[in-house]
Design a binder for these strands. Structure first.
Length: 592
RNA sequence: GUCCUCGUAGCUCAGUCGGAUAGAGCACAGGAUUCCUAAUCCUGGGGUCGCAGGUUCGAAUCCUGCCGGGGACACCA
C-alpha cells in the first residue's frame, strides 16, 4: 500500500468479524502503513487496558512507531484514533497518556464476538498459525525402573497440555516418550527382578542396598517364574540378565502406561534408547558424522573447582559443545569405552531431526537444568542451527497434607505414586493444579486444598463457571420453553450493553490470541489463568443479578433480551469448554 | 568456584520480546435474607517489585555487579 492509498482500513462488515482483536490490529496497521510507517509494525499490540474506564481495548501503535518515524506519539495517536473512529467496529477512540489509543468497541462488534465464540471449535481455530510446523514434544521419559511418582505427574501434565495447545495452534504434534532401556539402571532393575524371581520360587530373599526394593517387582518375579520355571536359577548372570531385563522393562513400561492413563495421557511414540545402540550403532554413526565436521576430539577437561576428590585426569572423547554456547565440552564415552548417556541422547535428538521436526521440546525435571545447554548445543550442531530445541524445566512438587509436608524418602520405595495421588483427589484437580503455575516455579500441592470444593480451589471455580452456564440454560428453558435456546446467534446481540456483559465479551475476544501465544512460548499455565479470569467475569455478572434484577441472564419478561444473554452465556460456556479440554480437564454440566 | 533458575502484598503466585495509578487468590475487617447453585459475590486496609548502579521519553520487565533461596556441575541416567 502506497502512501497515497491511506484511506481504507480493512474493516469488514461486523457480521463477518470473527477475530476482533486481530481485525483491530490489522486496522491499526493499515492506518499507520497508510502513513508510510512500516518500521515496527510487528510490535503493534492490541491489549486490554488495566483500567477498564480506558475502554475495551488499547493499542500502543503510536508509541511504538513514533520513534522511527520521528513523529510525536500523541499526534500520531490522534490520527490513528480519528481513523479508527470511522470503523463500524468502534464507537469511540481517543488518545491518552503518552500516546495510547483507547478503543471502545461498538455493539455490533461485541455482537460479532459473541456470535463467533458460540461455536467454540471454530472460534478456537482462529488461533491456528499460517505457518504450521512439525513439533515433537518429549515428556515423562521416566526410567522404566518403577511406577511413576508425583514428581513425574507434573511433567506429564505439562507436556500433555502443551501438546494439546500446540495442536490447537495448528502444528503437527508428536507426543513422545524416550525409554532409557540401555543404561546401568536397567541392569540393576534386572538384578532386582531376579531376586523376586527366586522369591517367587520359594526362596527367602534379602535385597541388598543398591537394588530396587519396591514390591512392585513381585509380579515381575512371578511372571518370570511362570515363564521360565526354575530354568534360570543355574545360569550365569550374563545368560539370564538380558532375558530378565527385557521382561522387567516390558512390565514396567506397561505399568507406566497404566499410570499415565489415569491422567488420560497417551504418548504416540515410545522410543527405545537401546535401539540406538544395537544392532545398528546409530550412536556411533551420529558421532562419526559430528567427527567429520570437526566437532569431536580427544582431550582433557579442566578439573571442576571445589570438588571431585576422585578426579582422574585423562583423555576423553569430547564433543565441542562450547562452539554452540555450552560452558565446556562434554564427554561422549565413559572410561570403559561405552557411550555416555549424552552420546545416546545426541543420537536420539538427531533421529528426531532426521524425522523432519522443525521444533523439539523436551519437558524435563529441574534437576536436569545443567543438561540444557549441552543438548541445545548438540541440536544446533546436528541441524546446522536449523532446528530449535526448547527445554521446559519443571520444578519440584512438594506434597502437603493439611499444611504438613508429606515425608518421602527414596529408599524402600517409600514415595507417593502418581496413581495414589490421582486415586485420592481425582484426575481433574491434579491436572489443573499442575498447570495453575508456571512450570519452572516450585509447586505446593496440598491434598486438603485440592480436594476442597470451594472458590479457593481454582479447578472447581472454573468448572463451576461452566456448570453454571449449563444451569442458566436449564433455568431459561424452565422459565420459557425449550425453543428459547433455538438459534441464539440470531438473537439481538447488540443489546448486550451492560458493563459486565461487555467485560465478558472482551474476555472472550482475547481467547484465540491467548491460546496462540501460550503455544508459541510453550507456557500452558497461561491458559489456566485465562480460564480462571473468564470464570471470574461470569461469576461476577451472575452475582450482579442479585443486586439488580434487570441484569439477570434469564428475565421472564423479556424474551429477546434473555436470548441475547443466553447467547453470551453459551459463548462463555463454549470457550470454557475449549480451554478446559485443552488442559485435559473435564467440563461438567453440573456440580454435585 | 562455575552455570542455570527463582526473589513482586503477611502467605501462595500472575504480570517480564520496555508502556498508563503493579494485579489475583488466601488471610484479615466489614457487607449481600424473598434471586438462574451463598461451591458465589461486593467493599476496605495492605507494596522501597531482593539491593545498587546503568540504558531512555518511560524499567517489576533490558544490561552490569552484589545479596538470598533452590538446582546442576568428568567418568550417572
Amino acid at each position: 500500500m502506497g502512501a497515497g492509498g491511506a484511506k481504507e482500513a480493512p474493516l469488514q462488515d461486523p457480521r463477518d468479524v470473527m477475530h476482533l482483536v486481530e481485525t483491530l490490529k490489522q486496522a491499526v496497521a493499515a492506518i499507520v502503513e497508510g502513513e508510510g510507517l512500516t518500521d515496527g509494525l510487528d510490535r503493534i499490540a492490541v491489549e486490554t487496558p488495566r483500567d477498564p474506564t480506558h475502554g475495551d481495548f488499547a493499542t500502543n501503535a503510536a508509541m511504538v512507531l513514533a520513534k522511527a518515524a520521528k513523529r510525536n506519539p500523541r499526534e500520531l495517536g490522534e490520527l490513528i484514533a480519528a481513523r479508527l473512529a470511522d470503523s463500524p467496529l468502534v464507537t469511540s477512540a481517543s488518545v491518552a497518556g503518552p500516546g495510547f489509543v483507547n478503543i471502545t468497541i461498538s455493539p455490533e462488534a461485541a455482537a460479532a464476538v459473541v456470535r463467533a465464540a458460540q461455536d467454540g471449535a471454530a472460534f478456537t481455530a482462529l488461533a491456528q498459525t499460517d505457518a504450521p510446523q512439525k513439533v515433537n514434544v518429549e515428556y515423562v521419559s521416566a526410567n522404566p525402573t518403577g511406577p511413576l511418582h508425583v514428581g513425574h505427574a507434573r511433567g506429564a501434565v505439562v507436556g500433555d497440555a502443551l501438546a494439546n495447545i500446540l495442536a490447537l495452534r495448528g502444528h503437527e504434534v508428536t507426543r513422545e516418550y524416550y525409554i532409557n532401556d540401555a543404561g546401568a539402571q536397567v541392569d540393576v532393575l534386572a538384578r532386582s527382578a531376579f531376586l523376586r524371581y527366586r522369591e517367587a520360587l520359594g526362596e527367602t530373599i534379602e535385597i541388598p542396598s543398591g537394588l530396587y526394593p519396591g514390591d512392585y517387582l513381585v509380579p515381575v518375579g512371578e511372571a518370570l517364574a511362570a515363564e521360565h520355571g526354575r530354568a534360570l536359577l543355574d545360569q550365569e548372570e550374563a545368560a539370564w540378565l538380558p532375558l530378565v531385563r527385557e521382561t522387567a522393562i516390558a512390565m514396567m513400561m506397561e505399568a507406566v502406561r497404566g499410570d499415565l492413563a489415569v491422567l488420560s495421557i497417551e504418548h504416540g511414540t515410545f522410543f527405545s534408547e537401546k535401539s540406538l545402540q544395537s544392532p545398528e550403532d546409530i550412536v556411533g554413526k551420529t558421532i562419526a558424522r559430528l567427527e567429520s565436521e570437526g566437532l569431536v576430539y580427544e582431550g582433557t577437561l579442566p578439573r571442576p573447582k571445589g570438588q571431585a576428590e576422585d578426579w582422574e585426569d585423562r583423555e576423553q572423547t569430547l564433543f565441542r559443545s562450547t562452539e554452540f554456547g555450552d560452558d565446556m565440552d562434554r564427554a561422549l564415552k565413559k572410561s570403559d569405552g561405552s557411550y555416555t548417556y549424552f552420546a545416546s541422547d545426541i543420537a536420539y535428538h538427531d533421529h528426531k531431526i532426521q524425522r523432519g521436526y522443525h521444533r523439539l521440546i523436551d519437558v524435563l525435571g529441574a534437576d536436569h537444568g545443567g543438561y540444557v545447554k549441552r543438548m541445545t548445543a548438540a541440536v544446533a550442531a546436528l541441524s546446522h542451527r536449523e532446528v530449535k530445541l526448547d527445554c521446559l524445566l519443571c520444578q519440584l512438587v512438594k506434597l502437603y497434607r493439611a499444611g504438613e509436608p508429606v515425608k518421602m524418602s527414596k529408599r524402600a520405595g517409600d514415595f507417593v505414586t502418581l496413581r495414589e495421588v490421582v486415586d485420592e483427589v481425582g484426575a481433574d484437580p491434579v491436572r489443573f493444579m499442575m498447570l495453575y503455575r508456571k512450570s519452572d516455579a516450585p509447586l505446593d500441592f496440598d491434598f486438603a486444598k485440592v480436594t476442597e470444593q470451594s472458590r479457593d480451589n481454582p479447578v472447581f471455580y472454573v468448572q463451576y463457571a461452566h456448570a453454571r452456564c449449563a444451569s442458566v440454560k436449564r433455568q431459561a428453558v424452565e422459565a420459557f420453553d425449550a425453543t428459547i435456546l433455538d438459534d441464539l446467534a440470531s438473537a439481538p446481540l447488540e443489546s448486550l450493553a451492560d458493563s459486565g456483559e461487555r467485560s465478558l465479551v472482551v474476555a472472550l475476544a482475547l481467547w484465540p490470541q491467548l491460546l496462540a501465544s501460550a503455544a508459541d512460548v510453550a507456557e500452558p499455565h497461561r491458559v489456566a489463568f485465562y480460564l480462571h479470569e473468564l470464570a471470574a467475569a461470569l461469576h461476577t455478572q451472575w452475582n450482579r443479578g442479585k443486586d439488580d434484577v434487570t441484569l439477570r441472564f434469564v428475565n421472564a419478561e423479556a424474551r429477546d433480551l434473555t436470548r441475547a444473554r443466553l447467547a453470551l452465556v453459551e459463548a462463555v460456556q463454549a470457550v470454557l469448554r475449549q480451554g478446559l479440554s485443552a488442559l485435559g480437564v473435564s467440563a461438567p454440566n453440573e456440580m454435585r
